[in-house]
């Protein structure tokens, strides 16, 4: 029971950080866009760093969206680490299996 409460606490922290961080970055991006409207270029993972360097508001918004997408992944990894510390091997394998399944889904 104690290990479950600790798991709850850490996973909740990861989810909250993901939420606030992405809200912050998305909101900054939207404000910049409202102040300096720029044409909406397609931003993909490849040109994101370049566009960010160029100060594109759309790139800032895209970064916020990327942070949001990474949040569920981060909580799977965080849980895996906590399970590893607690030596719950079955659940460490479960975490790895989830990541593998997502990878498989992306590749297909």
């Amino acid at each position: 029971m104690k290990s479950q409460r600790r798991l709850d606490r850490y996973i909740s922290i990861v989810l909250h950080i993901g939420m606030y961080l992405s809200i912050l970055v998305i909101a900054i991006g939207l404000m910049l866009y409202a102040l300096y409207p720029t044409p909406i270029d397609d931003i993909s993972l490849k040109n994101l760093p370049q566009e960010l360097m160029d100060g594109s508001p759309i790139a800032v918004i895209s970064l916020g969206i990327l942070l949001l997408i990474m949040t569920p992944l981060s909580r799977v990894i965080a849980a895996g680490v906590i399970f590893a510390v607690d030596r719950e091997i079955r659940f460490v394998l479960t975490s790895l299996f989830i990541l593998a399944a997502i990878l498989l889904a992306i590749m297909i």
Binding site: I23, I26, G29, I43, I61, G64, I65
Partner: peptide, 11 residues
């Protein structure tokens, strides 16, 4: 992913 629309939906 349409950035402005997705950002607005997320908020």
């Amino acid at each position: 992913i349409p950035p402005i629309l997705a950002a607005t939906v997320a908020l």
